[in-house]
Design a protein around this nucleic acid. Structure first.
Length: 294
DNA sequence: TATTTAACCTGGACGC
DNA sequence: TGCGTCCAGGTTAAAT
């Protein structure tokens, strides 16, 4: 399931394999994959044709390829959702299951394919606008509301801590809020909270400033380690552009480990339903708050 | 305004 | 074997 490390791994792959290449033709075989492109599949294809991909960027779990040529000032924006994959494959390779968008290039070499089993992901062409906190930086208008991620050199730690400590909501819900801090999904939220020995139901506003800083440090560590491992793969739903999965799942302490011993204290890991998700935690290391946030 | 909930979606796992 | 149900979860519109 793609979170920041997985999306960044894909971005790096795109940088290596599609930058500098000019789009010849785009074929959309599943309209849901481009549902966020309001003008429809034909318009998306027309906007991309003849344009060249010049940069591969990311904000949180969104990534985009800026265009030059006919699409100058616009970008192809991609969100992988839960199961989306961007694959660079030879044109003669058989179509994978759930292939929704195919992008062929003028050079006739390997094509870019968007594959998505659960269809939560998608593509669109969007206008680039100046970033609110740094107008010299441009990003798609769709992405403008997404906060910087903790690995971004321009991530404002003091602003994050202040905003976190104003939240009257559970800590884990705050970590998952992409307008507060981006790139963290269910897996890395659980892992970061475990490392910080904090329970996800604790009220964010109850966290002392120092503890918020420690938590952020653990978030950075978890994301950084996962990035170096090439991300986390479950059920083969996440792969990089070459179709290979990541290895970070071997390092998970709590996520998906219900009933198994906590690596720190050996207490059995518990799973609870939280915000329409599963939360995994150690009931011994991560004491539930006496008064959980709503 | 701030926060929470539900819906979107598919396929694998599981129970009967 | 076949059917029904549950579960996974990022985002956002709608509800509270």
């Amino acid at each position: 399931m793609p979170e920041l490390p997985e999306v960044e791994t894909v971005r790096e792959g795109l940088e290596r394999h599609v930058l500098g290449r000019t789009v010849r033709e785009v074929t959309v075989t599943h309209p849901r994959a481009v549902r966020r492109h309001a003008a429809g599949a034909a318009d998306l294809a027309a906007r991309l044709a003849g344009s060249r991909f010049v940069t591969a960027s990311r904000r949180g779990k969104y990534l985009w390829l800026a265009l030059s040529g006919p699409g100058d000032g616009e970008a192809l924006v991609v969100h992988l959702g839960m199961s989306g994959q961007l694959l660079v494959q030879p044109a003669h390779a058989p179509d994978p299951a759930h292939l929704h968008v195919r992008i062929r290039f003028e050079d006739g070499a390997g094509e870019l394919r968007f594959v998505d089993q659960r269809t939560f992901g998608g593509l669109l062409v969007d206008t680039l606008v100046p970033a609110a906190d740094r107008p010299v930086e441009h990003l798609p208008s769709l992405v403008a509301h997404i906060a910087r991620d903790p690995l971004d050199p321009r991530f404002d730690e003091r602003l994050f801590t202040a905003r976190l400590r104003r939240r009257d909501s559970p800590l884990k819900r705050a970590l998952l809020d992409q307008t507060l801090v981006s790139g963290i999904g269910n897996i890395y939220a659980d892992e970061s909270l475990w490392r910080a020995r904090l329970h996800g139901e604790r009220r964010a506003a109850s966290l002392p400033r120092a503890a918020a800083g420690v938590l952020l440090g653990h978030v950075r560590d978890v994301l950084g380690e996962a990035l170096r491992a090439g991300g986390t793969s479950f059920d083969a739903l996440y792969v990089n552009v070459n179709g290979r999965g990541g290895y970070f799942e071997r390092s998970l302490a709590v996520y998906g480990r219900e009933g198994l011993p906590c690596p720190r204290c050996a207490a059995p890991i518990r799973r609870i339903a939280f915000a329409n998700r599963s939360s995994f935690f150690c009931p011994s290391c991560q004491r539930p708050p006496r008064r959980p946030a709503r």
